[in-house]
Simulated scan of single mutants.
Amino acid sequence: MFRSVMIATAVLFGMPAAAHDHPSLTYADFESSVPHIDMDACPPDLAIGDVFCRITMNNDALHIYVFENDGDSPFVSVHTFYEDEYELTFSQ
């Protein structure tokens, strides 16, 4: 399982520059292979166009993956934030 997460992450980190030219990774691919948390809404700086976001965490980094909310929901970009760049809030 860990190996598939690492492979999927490596693929995704290499894709942002080419994501618009060849949108081959879809949300269905991501959802079935990468453990993640659904976000109610994308952070304002990342909510450009009709998109939705998902979060993964690895050690002290939080990764926000952005997907188009159209068609097959192709991957758009990934943004990484380290422990001093975000604050988690839990609600009950």
Rank of each mutant, 00 (worst) to 15 (best):
N69E: 11
S4D: 07
T9P: 01
P23Q: 08
H63F: 06
S77I: 02
D29A: 05
F90Q: 13
L88H: 04
V76Y: 02
D21C: 09
S77E: 11
A18R: 08
V78I: 15
A47I: 09
V66A: 06
A8Q: 05
P43M: 14
D45M: 14
D50C: 00
E68D: 10
F2R: 08
N59Q: 14
V11L: 15
A8W: 03
A10K: 09
E68W: 07
D38K: 14
V78H: 10
S4M: 08
R54Q: 15
M6L: 15
T89L: 13
S4N: 12
F2T: 09
E85L: 04
D72Y: 03
L62R: 06
D40P: 07
A18P: 02
A61P: 01
D38G: 09
T26N: 09
I55F: 00
V34E: 03
V66S: 00
T56V: 03
G14L: 12
D21Q: 15
F67C: 02
N58E: 04
F30P: 00
M6T: 15
V5N: 06
F13Y: 14
M15Y: 07
Q92D: 08
D60N: 06
F67E: 00
T9C: 13
N58S: 08
D72G: 03
F81T: 02
V51M: 06
D72I: 10
I64D: 00
H63L: 05
M6Q: 15
D40W: 12
A10F: 08
D45V: 12
L62E: 02
H79V: 12
H36V: 01
V76F: 04
T80W: 03
P44W: 05
E83N: 12
L12Y: 01
Y65N: 05
A10R: 12
H79R: 11
V5S: 02
A8K: 06
E68G: 08
D21K: 15
T26S: 15
D72P: 07
V11D: 04
F2M: 07
I55Q: 05
V34C: 08
D21T: 14
S77K: 04
A8V: 04
M6G: 08
I55W: 00
I48S: 14
Y82G: 00
H63N: 13
Y27C: 04
D38S: 14
C53G: 01
D29Q: 10
P43V: 11
I64S: 00
E68I: 02
D60Q: 10
